[in-house]
Simulated scan of single mutants.
Amino acid sequence: MNILSIQSHVVYGHVGNASAVFPLQRLGCEVWPIHTVQFSNHTGYGAWKGRVFDGGMIGEVLEGVAERGALGRCDGVLSGYMGGADIGEAILDAVGKVRAANPAARYCCDPVIGDVGRGVFVRPGIPEFMRARAVPAADVITPNQFELEYLAERTTGTLADARRAVEIVHLLGPKVILVTSLHTDETPADAIDLLASGPDGCFRLRTPKLDLSINGAGDAIAALFFFHFLSTGSTATALSRSASSIFGVLQRTVAAGSREILTVAAQDEFVSPSRVFAAEAV
């Protein structure tokens, strides 16, 4: 399998492509990364070095890949944080070129907009771009609860609310939706839920809530869910495998007291999770 991943990149630590690429490679997937930024470290440290690339650079790099005759072998395009509308347009242009070369290729968009407790943290215009342009173009999306509520324009205090919000977002275009970091009135205080909906049904998965605040987990689970869905065609299987792997990695991160997700040190969790969580039809 070949996946084109267009995301941010950091030298130190694991977010964006630095979080998504290696897990896919560990599973035997060939990844073609295009970086939208290259920073020394993630911005959560408060200081960083590096630069943001523009949409023209993304198009130029993709053109070089196309000249190698490779786009017809691309099975999927994965995107995450978009620094500006020009980046977003360049990503959608790349998706269009890949689909023209291989109509069976799929696009997975992690619609990064904001988070519960933080609100919107992307540049002005990006939330609107996500809802109007990126999400309708995607086959698969992986919003968190805050982003689901933004896209559906409704709150998700109950599981029924969350399911209705997912149904509304399906109408925008994506056939498969993974909702991460979901907490409704049915979620125990010591747990966290994930909800996935696709052609084969709607499924919930619950894991213990870990005491950590870490960057990069969302980027990794989006990549893993996309890979497993492309591999199996099963929403439930993709949910179980991706969530189980990320839980294992995060559990080891907590045990190590690390500020950075242990993408490399806990890599066996991507192939054979130490604890497997089942997806429950809802």
Rank of each mutant, 00 (worst) to 15 (best):
V264N: 06
L230T: 02
R154I: 09
K97F: 06
L262V: 00
I113R: 04
A100E: 15
L250S: 05
S274V: 00
Q25P: 07
P23Q: 08
E186D: 11
P33E: 06
T232F: 14
V77C: 06
G50A: 09
A191V: 00
G72A: 13
T158L: 09
V95Y: 05
R252M: 08
L182A: 05
H9C: 11
C108P: 00
M1W: 00
T155R: 15
D139T: 09
G44R: 03
V31P: 12
I168W: 02
N41Y: 02
S258R: 03
V11C: 12
R99M: 11
G69H: 09
D193F: 08
L148I: 12
L224D: 04
V15F: 06
L239P: 00
D219M: 12
L262E: 03
I34L: 15
C108K: 00
T155A: 15
E60H: 12
R206G: 09
I221L: 07
S272G: 10
R241I: 00
D75A: 14
D190W: 00
F227K: 14
N215E: 14
A236N: 02
P127A: 09
A18H: 14
E153A: 15
W48V: 03
A101D: 01
Y107K: 08
D193T: 06
E186F: 03
F247E: 04
A255R: 13
R164C: 09
S197V: 13
L4C: 04
R123Y: 13
I214K: 02
V140S: 04
F22N: 02
L195I: 07
I91P: 00
G69T: 08
E67T: 05
L205C: 06
A138E: 09
V276T: 15
H42W: 02
N2H: 14
S274R: 05
E30V: 05
M57G: 01
G46C: 11
D93C: 03
A220D: 01
G88M: 02
S234M: 10
A222C: 15
I261T: 13
A256L: 08
A100Q: 14
V21Q: 11
